[in-house]
């Protein structure tokens, strides 16, 4: 499958996590990376261009930090303008039908904070309900998010681990070998991805 990463981070240059993840993605041949804040610094998202790119891919990944239980503003602007009625949804809106959507998210809080007992009270996936429903409205298959937790406490080694997992996820998607059944049920996709033997020890 052809994978498109729509990356939205207004302060990418300060992010330890996303620089690793993006580096890992860049090393995957055949993955299209679109850095939205670099392409649209003025927020003037161009629907035509974006729609053409979407149509050439099967897996749409939104990669972004978690801001107020959602994505950064430009990602929302992108959704508002690109996912048009009559194209992405509505009676004639079938352009995205059958494609997969998933999110790659970084959060400051750890896994416990995003649990019923934790600070935030709900798992990340629950907060992502608007994205999930948007995907469904566009006749897309929504997969559980890949979440990097506790970004401030991560060691270099752990960061490398996440990058490895991300690379593996991308390869798995490209090869169309992802266990979809599990990918829908599991709350976070990162737990599904087995690490390559060298790192997982």
């Amino acid at each position: 499958m052809k994978v498109l990463i729509l990356f939205a981070h207004p302060a990418f240059e300060r992010s330890r996590v996303h620089s690793r993840l993006i580096n890992a993605a860049k090393q995957q041949p055949g993955v299209t990376l679109r850095d939205l804040y670099e392409v649209y610094p003025d927020f003037d998202v161009h629907p035509d261009t974006e729609q053409q790119i979407l149509q050439k891919h099967d897996v749409i990944i939104f990669q972004h930090p978690l801001y107020w239980y959602s994505g950064p503003a430009l990602l929302k602007q992108w959704m508002d303008l690109v996912l048009e009625h009559g194209w992405a949804y509505g009676k004639e809106g079938v352009a995205l039908k059958g494609k997969y959507m998933l999110q790659v998210i970084s959060t400051g809080g750890n896994e416990h904070a995003y649990s019923p007992e934790g600070h935030h009270g709900h798992p990340v996936k629950q907060f992502m309900l608007p994205f999930e429903q948007s995907a469904k409205l566009c006749n897309m298959e929504y997969l559980s998010p890949f979440v990097v937790h506790g970004t401030n406490q991560l060691t270099e080694l752990q960061l490398d681990e996440y990058a490895e997992r991300y690379a593996t996820l991308l390869q798995t998607l490209q090869a169309d070998r992802l266990d979809l059944q599990k990918a829908r049920q599991i709350s976070e996709l990162n737990n599904l991805i087995a690490l390559p033997p060298i790192i997982s020890k």
Binding site: H46, P47, M79, D80, L81, V82, E84, H85, Y89, G90
Partner: peptide, 17 residues
């Protein structure tokens, strides 16, 4: 071409659905 922003007319789209 230049100013397309139909996506912002969300209410209209809902009605049409």
């Amino acid at each position: 071409m230049m100013l397309r922003d139909a996506g912002w007319d969300r209410d209209n789209a809902e009605e049409r659905n």
